[in-house]
Write a protein that binds this DNA or RNA. Sequence first.
DNA 1: CTGAAAGCGCTTACAG
DNA 2: CTGAAAGCGCTTACAG
Lengths: 355, 355
Amino acid sequence: MKTIKDIAEEAKVSTGTVDRVIHKRPGVSPKTREKVQKLLDKYDFERNILASTLAFKKKYRIATLIPSVVSKNQFWYGPHLGMKSAAKEIQKYGVETHRFFFDQYNLKSYKQALDKILALKPNGIVFAPFFYNTSLAFVDKLKEEEIPCVFINIDLDTPNKLTYIGQNALQSGNLCGKMMNLITKPEEPIAILTSQKNVGRHLAIETRIKGFLNYFSDNVKDKQIKKIIIDDFDTDMIEKALSKELKSDKQIAGIFVPSSAIFMIANFLESRGLNNIRTIGYDTHLDNLEYIRKGSIDFAIDQNPFEQGYMGLKILTEYLLLNKTPKPKYSSAINMVTKENVDYFDVADTIEYAV
Amino acid sequence: MKTIKDIAEEAKVSTGTVDRVIHKRPGVSPKTREKVQKLLDKYDFERNILASTLAFKKKYRIATLIPSVVSKNQFWYGPHLGMKSAAKEIQKYGVETHRFFFDQYNLKSYKQALDKILALKPNGIVFAPFFYNTSLAFVDKLKEEEIPCVFINIDLDTPNKLTYIGQNALQSGNLCGKMMNLITKPEEPIAILTSQKNVGRHLAIETRIKGFLNYFSDNVKDKQIKKIIIDDFDTDMIEKALSKELKSDKQIAGIFVPSSAIFMIANFLESRGLNNIRTIGYDTHLDNLEYIRKGSIDFAIDQNPFEQGYMGLKILTEYLLLNKTPKPKYSSAINMVTKENVDYFDVADTIEYAV
DNA sequence: CTGAAAGCGCTTACAG
DNA sequence: CTGAAAGCGCTTACAG
């Protein structure tokens, strides 16, 4: 492996000049530049990133923004851990990570966080763009200030993002449809249960439902599917909405919840001893893990929450430090979790490397 | 963040002495050692790994050994890619990776590889211990020479390993049982198809079958399960073994293959137009991906092959460089792959980070 | 037992 | 436009 010094000697220039050529910095005559560049190409020179970082004292600031993580029982604990892990790694390269949080049901708290981030003047941002319109306006502003941003978990259709990391909601819904079809009989009715509160706030939910319905329209004739919308996932509302269905003549045999709230339904069914009703939902935070382990949730879709956070920070760092342009989109896995493999989806078991 | 220089100044010693204390090297009086150690503890000193690597010129050699990867259509291509990716990362830290391969059906080629590895005198080894007895003897020898070793994919019950990274075969078989039960009707017979060639060579296969059978004995009454053993997975033998079953009165409705050879069965069934027979097997190499995508393989179990290779090298490196003792065992995921999520399991899409 | 000094490979402020 | 020199934080061979 050649070093800058080797190249400098062979080109009969100083190491400083070689460095200027490597980084395409000004202050080198075209002739010298060409001579050095040829040698760099000839030896396929790769600079030692360790030495480079050590000598290069510029610091980078990255801001991260996700819904507040008040306990480990939440989906967002996963991305949070992933970002913490990545932050520790990139700290070695002089990248400081500043964490911001907001209340995902409170637009005002979101806006406040965005203001704080702008005030920080970061070199880049990794965030989950909740609240469609506000987020779009924010992204345009970032564009003006030339601050690159990475979306995790939620995508927005805008050219002003560096990349998006998250799941294909349509396809994951489709898979839920397939599994629901497998665990219920053709003649048994099923229900989709969702909350009014998510409308306009989190786009993936509707897309998941669409994918779910697509499966049946594409593959199964005449499946009875009811759509039940409640105001919010609290015990009373669930009770109210479901007891009607359960008393009815044609009792539903399966419930699909296109969000991480599926554990609320599993809990309700358990408390009523209704273990003959099948359930499918999303995410593998602690609350869900518990019910999956008991079999009260039949299947849950995991979307690699840790990796979403981890990749977000790493990809942005490589863009800032190495000028590496990411792909326009990174699709997270669509993992099916059930009683027999649940032990391998606890985000707390994720490994962190120090090297 | 404190540096060695800061600590040295406060302790009124030289940086060399601080360095000796940090690394517990001899040549420091107990009194000085204690004084410095106290400051290190007080400030929770973490040495700058970049500077450390740059200054510390010792090189490490790691040997890796897996079955030869002659094409991308093989399970072992996954671990191979994972190791290549990790090798690139750890190269920055002065770790050279030397790759060795063997023919997994040829004990002699395995022994030859082991000899070559010993001749290299590596600082550590990452390998897949095929051939039970030979591997055990080899591991004992490594112990004598104080060369740490990491097992990937296949485990051996010996205290002389650093750690094992791979899947829990019993549980993955169990999950296959569950899925097979879902996709066939209770009264329909099913078959387990396996090859004589794997006996005594790859322990996981038998354990997977055990897990599969356990599912039925624990959860289902009177499922008819036939065990079919063929000499090898070639077209003629499959034809011979299956055509008998398919002509029989009670035709089998599902086939479980506890190895990556499931695509051979899918291919056979396809060629006969037998798309009413369900199939479940292992691994997501290209051959299988193709049949999963078409739906000719209903479910395959993925075990994160890339990560097995990647983790193996990283964990061994952290042990050698940072003295970080790994957990005794790392369980790989048990991922269920089917037509609707197959796109997210192509090992070729795995990301490599340069930072 | 301890310190001063050189060096790992790269970057930069300064002088010319 | 170019080079010599200092420095990033740590390690080590050498001198005492």
